[in-house]
Amino acid sequence: MPVSILYYALFVIALGAALMVVLSRNTVYSAAFLILTMLCLAGIFLLMHQEFVAAIQVIVYAGAIMVLFLFVIMLLNLREREILLPDFRSLRIWVVLLVLVFFVQVGATCFIVLRQMRDVYPPELPPDTIPLIAKTLLTKYLLPFELVSVLLVIAIIGAAMIARHDEPAEHSDSS
C-alpha cells in the first residue's frame, strides 16, 4: 500500500498548498505555494503513468511560467504596500458561500453523470503512452497544434510590444 499512502500524501499537500496560495498575503509566498501545488499534481500524474504530462508540468509550468511570475514580481520591485494588499474582507463570506454552492452543485453533477457511466469503464491506458501522444498530436490534432504555435508567436510579439519602454513623448501621454 505504499503507492496509496504516497497518493494521499500528495493529495493533502496539493490541497493545502492551493489553500495557502490564496491565504498567504505575500505574493511571493503565493507563487512558491503555487509551485508546490504544481509539483504535487505532477506527482499524481506520475502515479497514473502519465510521465510526459508530468514532465511538461514540471518543466513548463513550475519551471518556466512560475519563474516568469517571480521574475515579474521582482522586476516590478513592488513596494511593501503593493505586495501585501489586503483582500476584500467584506466580500469574502459571500464569495465563499457562492463557491461552496458551486462545489456542491458541480460535484453532484459529476456524480450523476459518472454513475450512469460506471458500467462502461473501458480498460485503462497502457503504461507507455508517449508514442501514442506524439502520433495523435501530429495527425488528428495537427491543425490545432499549428494554430497554437501561431498563438504563441503572437503572444511573444504582443508581450514584447506591450512591455517595452515607451518613447519619452508617449510616456507623458499615457500617464
Binding site: 492551493a18 489586503p86 469574502r92
Partner: peptide, 24 residues
C-alpha cells in the same frame, strides 16, 4: 481534488486585490 482546487482558485480570483495574485 480537481474541483476543490478549482473552487479555491475561484475564491482567490474573487477576493485578491493584487493583479499578479489574481493571475496566479
Amino acid at each position: 481534488l480537481s474541483l476543490a482546487i478549482f473552487s479555491i482558485g475561484i475564491i482567490g480570483f474573487l477576493v485578491k486585490r493584487n493583479a499578479i495574485a489574481i493571475l496566479m
